[in-house]
Amino acid sequence: MSATAASNDVMIRFRGAGVTYPNGVVGLQDVSLDIRQGEFVVIVGSSGAGKSTFLRTINGLTPLSTGTVEVSGQPVPRRQGRDLRQLRARIGMVFQDFRLVRRVSVLNNVLIGRVARVAGWRSVLNLWPRADVELAFSALERVGIVDKAYTRAGELSGGQQQRVGIARALAQEPEVILADEPVASLDPVTCHQVMEDLLRINRELGITTLVNLHFLDLARRYGQRIIGLQQGRLVFDGAGRDVTDADFQRIYGRRPEEDDFLQEAST
């Protein structure tokens, strides 16, 4: 089991981690596991299982109520402040709804990934150092949309916008990428392209990558390791190719249905 990996290459370590929201809803409960450096992990679970909560505890967007999360040995700070911002700078995040600033250019969106590394006045005046612009461009090159650098983000298609989202995360030169259902708003073909992008980046740059997915076939295909959540609890942790329909039934608490697959139209 990977939960007992040698501690020297552990990137993220959960120990008894739990989240109870202010309204009393339990989002995550007693999760303990290790994620090694360079792993590509897919988290599955039905809607409301706690996938987003799980990811967001890693960069402190959702604070833990109990237990600890460590990123390369350093506990995630519970309070807002410089420590937390410095940790977040090392963790890129990709969102289901892209979260781009639609009215500004693709390049400026990607430069947001540099916000923690440049002087405040430079980002305020939109005067980014040449080296950071260079980084933004190479991030765009890596996801193949550098030709859109000066287009307004809002004018791109969904798949292109998600690539900008990935480029923004890449521009952070992150050690970890967290992708929260990155393909849920995309059509099947684009969906695979974006997943391939994430996998390629993981292989080429060795960035530890965690992806929340809803579709079982996508999870099986891309997840080298699959983590199953149900009602905030860890119910599965194993290699992607070993997952059986019985495992999925356990994760979902029911028999998999047609909706749980993305119908492999493109392959």
Binding site: F137, E141, G144, V146, D147, K148, A149, Y150
Partner: peptide, 8 residues
Amino acid sequence: MNRPAPPP
């Protein structure tokens, strides 16, 4: 792919 020229 080539980098586009910045707009005027």
